[in-house]
Amino acid sequence: MNRETFGAIDIGSNAIRLLIDYVEAYEDGRTEYKKAAFVRVPIRLGDDVFLRGRISNGKAEALCDAMQGFSALSRAFAVKDYRAYATSAMREAENGSEVVSLIRNRSGISVEIISGEAEAGTIFAAGGLRETLDPAKTYLYVDVGGGSTEIVVYARRRKVDACSFRLGTVRIFSRAEEPAEWERFGRWLEQIDEKWHPSGIIGSGGNINKVHKMLEKKSRECIRAKELTSLYARLRDMSVEERMEQLYLNQSRAEVIVPALKIFTEVLRICRIDTVCVPRMGLADGIIHQLYRQYNPFA
Rank of each mutant, 00 (worst) to 15 (best):
N2D: 07
N2W: 03
I9A: 05
A15M: 08
L18V: 14
I20W: 00
Y22F: 11
E24Y: 11
D28T: 11
T31R: 15
E32H: 10
E32D: 15
F38G: 04
V39M: 14
I43H: 12
I43Y: 12
L45C: 14
R52H: 11
R52L: 05
R54Y: 12
K59D: 07
K59W: 04
E61Q: 04
A62L: 13
A62C: 10
C64V: 04
A66C: 11
M67C: 08
A76F: 13
F77G: 09
D81G: 08
R91M: 09
V100Q: 00
R104P: 04
I114F: 06
S115W: 11
S115C: 11
S115E: 08
E119G: 10
A126S: 15
A126M: 14
G128N: 02
L133R: 04
L133H: 12
D134R: 12
P135G: 05
Y139Q: 05
V142W: 04
D143T: 06
D143S: 08
T149V: 13
R156Y: 01
R156P: 00
R158W: 00
K159W: 05
V160F: 02
D161P: 04
R184P: 01
I192M: 03
I202G: 02
S204Y: 10
G205K: 01
N209L: 00
V211Y: 01
E221I: 13
R234H: 09
M238T: 09
E242S: 05
M244P: 13
M244H: 11
L249D: 03
Q251F: 11
V256Y: 00
P259N: 01
A260L: 00
E266N: 06
E266W: 06
R272H: 10
C277I: 09
D285P: 13
D285C: 11
G286E: 01
I288R: 11
H289E: 13
Q294N: 03
